[in-house]
């Protein structure tokens, strides 16, 4: 089960990140989860937002390049060792993680996970875990 992830290109330049958060504030888009990678000159912000379509249009109108793709949002109990179990299962199944970031809300927690083979990973994960649907995650 996948949810929509928004990836935005950001130049590593003073004020650029605020320009991005400003677009979301102005257009009334809620950021549910965010991961910002860093490199010397460029970054990619990965986000789960309340309205992906609207966000992407707003970004284009404000000169941002973005792309939407699918990512697994896996439900985890918010307690010690849960993520470790999940990653272990993936390792044993021969799946490498490309990137991941987390989301917690009260007792609920999710890990947003991209692997090099999402189809295979989904099957492995589904044995012991469940996924957030888009609707669920937007209401977290």
């Amino acid at each position: 089960m996948f949810v929509k992830q928004l990836c935005v290109f950001i130049e590593n330049k003073h004020g650029k990140f605020q320009e991005l958060t400003n677009v979301f504030a102005e257009y009334g888009i809620n950021m549910i989860s965010l991961s910002l990678s860093d490199s010397t000159a460029y970054g990619v912000a990965r986000l789960i937002v309340s309205d992906t379509d609207k966000a992407q249009k707003a970004l284009a109108a404000n000169g941002f390049a973005s792309v939407v793709n699918d990512i697994m949002a896996i439900k985890l109990d918010n307690k010690l060792g849960e993520l470790n179990k999940l990653i272990k299962e993936l390792n044993e199944g021969g799946i490498d993680v490309q990137y991941a970031y987390s989301l917690t809300s009260g007792k609920e927690a999710a890990i947003l996970l991209k692997t090099l083979d999402d189809k295979k990973a989904e099957k492995i994960i589904a044995k012991n875990h469940s996924f957030y649907t888009e609707e669920e995650i937007y209401n977290l």
């Binding site: 992830q5 990836c7 290109f9 990678s37 490199s39 460029y42 970054g43 990619v44 990965r46 284009a60 941002f64 390049a65 973005s66 792309v67 793709n69 490309q98 990137y99 991209k114």
Partner: peptide
């Protein structure tokens, strides 16, 4: 913008 991808590696 049409060629954007989800990773910094692409850039």
């Amino acid at each position: 913008p049409e060629k954007m991808q989800d990773s910094v590696a692409f850039i």
